[in-house]
């Protein structure tokens, strides 16, 4: 079971307090009506699905109730950093991550 640092609570908490909420930094257009069908379909359905570091959202649903972002390695499961929604995606030095 992962330990996830909630950037709102400032605590490392067990994974069962959180619910996964999909890829992060997928931004809803301010005016969806202006989006083309193709662009809207991409927003709805296409995700990066990387092997490696992945920016994703978690919901501290059984804790403070806030959403947060995490950079997790999809092979090792290691979470390098968590941060609040709206903050820029941190860059992760690949060397620091454990090798798969």
């Amino acid at each position: 079971m992962l330990q996830i640092r909630c950037p709102w609570c400032g605590e490392d908490r067990p994974e069962i307090e959180f619910r996964y909420a999909g890829e992060a930094h997928v931004v809803r257009a301010r005016l969806p009506a202006d989006e083309s069908d193709a662009a809207w379909a991409e927003y709805l359905y296409l995700r990066t699905n990387p092997k490696g570091w992945h920016a994703e959202r978690w919901h501290h649903v059984h804790g403070c109730g806030r959403f947060l972002n995490a950079i997790r390695h999809t092979v090792t499961d290691r979470i390098a950093v968590t941060y609040k929604p709206g903050e820029p995606r941190p860059t992760i030095d690949d060397q620091q991550g454990p090798t798969p």
């Binding site: 909420a21 809803r28 919901h59 709206g86």
Partner: peptide, 13 residues
């Protein structure tokens, strides 16, 4: 509630 919180916190903060 989770759906609403999601939009309130992340799309319409």
């Amino acid at each position: 509630l989770a759906h609403m919180e999601d939009y309130l916190q992340t799309e319409f903060p």
